[in-house]
Design a protein around this nucleic acid. Sequence first.
DNA 1: ATTCTGTCCTGTAGGC
DNA 2: TGCCTACAGGACAGAA
Length: 273
Amino acid sequence: MPELPEVETVSRDLSGTLLGLTIKKVEIIDARVVRDILPAKFCAVLKAKIIKRISRRGKAIIFGFDSGPFFIVQLMMTGQLVHAAALPVPVLKETKVIFTLSDGSHLLYNDQRLFGRLTLIENLNDFRHFQLLGPEPFETDFNPDYMQGVLKNKTVAIKKVLLDHGFVAGIGNIYASEILFRCRIDPRRNAKSLDVKEITSLHYQIIEVLQEAIEYRGSSMRNYRDGQGKKGRFNERIRVYARENESCPNCSHKVLRITQGGRSTFFCKKCQR
DNA sequence: ATTCTGTCCTGTAGGC
DNA sequence: TGCCTACAGGACAGAA
């Protein structure tokens, strides 16, 4: 499901409702989502922990407690972290883990496809995924100079580079297509063929599109829900993603769908060069 | 050293 | 109605 804007939305939502609460009970319904730790230990370690901080790095949500390890959640394609304040607890077929909190509310981890990963780690620097992650798009180390330095050696399509989380963290399949559409850059272009002007535009639109998507609380294609279980509103701003054969908002040419690296890309052949 | 391919899963939509 | 195929917000191991 979620890319940076969706994960940021969930992280902010949960920061607003969970800080200061204690985890009273952890029920694992499907242990396949718990990684690199025995399920029984996972429950035991989290029990009685006070939630002190909730943050995001790339597409991962990080819970910090009064003591002990960090709890990391990667929602992957269909994961959801939903805080249910009222009873009855809205348990679904997709609910895989239930956290009971000290105020009687519940945090549900839902995941249709079970690709999501819940893990505990003592030191964030030891988390392999974080070691492979590139700069955050909103940080100053992600800038046109950095981009130029990387792109000049890249022989793959620019769309695939945007999806490479070692290049920049947090962009996924929806926003890669949307960003390139707004830059009017053809997703099939060899990354090293971009000139300085195009790289500057790409840098600007990466930030612009992601920030706008955060303002709209993310995109809900299918499964995505925010921290309260509600859909995002960025779908109304999406110009090309999942709009094959619809007309381009700029030129009315048909939006095309192609496959790159086994994943769909949507673009306008006339507007994007 | 990069880049590509297959895989982990469940569910839904569309064609016939 | 059912059966079949294609596809779905991600990430990574292992192969090329």
